[in-house]
Design a protein around this nucleic acid. Structure first.
Lengths: 318, 318
DNA sequence: CCTTCCGATGGGCATATACTCATCCGCCGG
DNA sequence: CCGGCGGATGAGTATATGCCCATCGGAAGG
């Protein structure tokens, strides 16, 4: 078909549209298209590619998951994330944990399937606990599970939501609880604690973790740190004045995602936050209340992966 | 990823949606999808196929031609056509000939490109004439062009719009003009005419035609048969009373596409209409005025191919 | 009229995709 | 507890697709 009988541009685009239609809508093979349009197969291929390049074909996914993946892609783009999963929100309960727990579990499971030894470090929190609950039982003795922070309060009692032990049990992997409490009394005590062999070993493992899953805590009266009794109301208010908007494994940061240089952070005994480089540091967090904390963590590149809900993702991008 | 932890149907469909999204929207290869989703390549392929089968992915073509091809596909479906082309209508002049002439010429060209001998039979009319004008010059001595009806009026003068000669000249093929006039005086004269060797030979060629291109005539005061003087106003009115809505190569038919058993048809000297079986009998017709005639021809399976305008296609499907 | 250049073309090949088949796993009835 | 059944899986393979490159032909400029 001689394109030059008419305006070549138009006709060529028309042909591209035809080819695109035949390929994507009618499901023809490029060979059939070539025959039907009277051109060579290669030309048909070029036309189909052109239809794609010229954005003539628009693909839409008619499934809740489609919107989620759009949001996830947007978040990845915007915040330079290695990985991002957005779970469909149930309109009835937009911030239900189950969805994101399943999504996060899928991420985790992917890593655990590796036959190579992997070090997985975990924070704490309801989200992570729920995530681990969603994992199927697997036999993964080759991996190592390590906690990034203590589960002891200063009085020696345990915090709830311990994900590390649960995960280790579930997959039959050796695990390293964090051998220090969440907080030291002061910087001096902290320094002493960190000299312990077990602490140094565990902190090193955390630094080498192939995958880190953490929660994100908000900084209001519903803050996990406050609810669990690590932060008095007075301390909370002081931190808020210093600009605190969120915390990850107890490290408190401001709206730009910078760890605040304050008395509280000098007492935090948790493993240092991994520099979110090439190894995934994935936050599992959602909910209106955590929004500023999540946004700050993303802005400050404290994390390079996020698993969240559709509703939260939308608000993050707004 | 064990689907059986949750409702298997849902999860599988979700996975299909993810896979579809990754494939069609994100442009991943199935191998990448397999890695990202932690499944085998084959499973990824199945998921993509499922997303397609379950109609999760909707492809839309953002180009005027897209609408045309949708209409063409709908017409093919609805009327069991072998081939159907819908040319974009210029909103300024919805029934302009050029568009459909180009489209029809493309159809014709496709057949002419064959190195095998093809018999192409033609009707008459502005549409066919315009179609032939759109053909590029080609050297096709292997083909044969034959006319399905005469171009002589009863007084021996020629009708306009002779497409056969023009086509034969353009492609350098041997051609067979129709050796009889359009109409005989009566059935008896007709029978005598058809005994002629030339007539029998030409009619046989028409019956064997590999491609037949015909126009469709309406049955009102603008009817080609009337304008060209073959049908008096009185005869027209009588045929209309008998239910005539259109004609193809002078054979007059009713709204169901049945050739009417009437005096006029008993005088028609044109080659019998080919039974629209597997060999293409393509009508080139468009325009509000021809709508009932086209619809009837489609309903009666007098044709198995149609080239028309976007506007006409829409009305045919309405 | 000839030369040069650019885009289009089709052959050939590496890769990706679709399909078939044997097998496996979990479920169910005996 | 066992055997049969149906869907899911992975290996293998035929087919389709994407890409590189040599070549061609028409347009612009000398």
């Amino acid at each position: 078909m001689s394109q030059n009988r008419f305006t070549p541009e138009t006709t060529r685009l028309d042909d591209a549209a035809r080819a695109g239609w035949l390929y994507y809508v009618a499901g023809n093979t490029q060979d059939e298209i070539a025959r039907k349009m009277g051109v060579s197969r290669q030309t048909a291929q070029r036309l189909v590619a052109m239809a794609l390049a010229e954005r003539l074909v628009k693909v839409r996914l008619d499934h809740p998951i489609g919107r989620c993946m759009d949001l996830a892609a947007a978040l990845r783009d915007r915040f330079g994330l290695i990985t991002c999963e957005v779970a469909p929100s149930d309109p009835e309960a937009p911030d239900l944990l189950t969805g994101i727990a399943i999504a996060a579990a899928a991420e985790l499971e992917r890593v655990l399937k590796s036959p190579e030894r992997r070090i997985v470090s975990l924070g704490t929190g309801r989200n992570l606990r729920a995530t681990v609950e969603q994992l199927p039982r697997m036999a993964c003795p080759q991996h190592v599970v390590v906690s990034r922070l203590g589960n002891m309060m200063q009085d020696g009692s345990a915090t709830p939501y311990n994900a590390t032990i649960r995960l280790a049990e579930r997959i039959g992997a050796p695990h390293f609880p964090y051998p220090l409490p969440v907080l030291a009394r002061d910087a001096q005590e902290l320094a002493a604690m960190q000299q312990q062999q077990a602490a140094r070993n565990t902190i090193r493992l955390c630094a080498e973790a192939d995958l880190s899953l953490v929660g994100i805590g908000q900084m209001d009266m519903t803050a996990p740190l406050h609810v669990d009794g690590f932060l008095s109301t007075a301390e909370m208010e002081e931190l808020a004045r210093a600009g605190a908007v969120g915390e990850i494994t107890s490290w408190v940061y401001d709206a730009q995602g910078r760890i605040i240089d304050c008395a509280f952070n000098h007492r935090v005994a948790s493993a240092p936050l991994p520099r979110a480089g090439d190894r995934p540091v994935i936050a599992v967090a959602s909910g209106q209340a955590k929004l500023p904390a999540i946004r700050a963590a993303l802005n400050g590149r404290l994390i390079n992966g996020l698993v969240t809900s559709e509703a939260t993702a939308e608000r993050l991008l707004a």
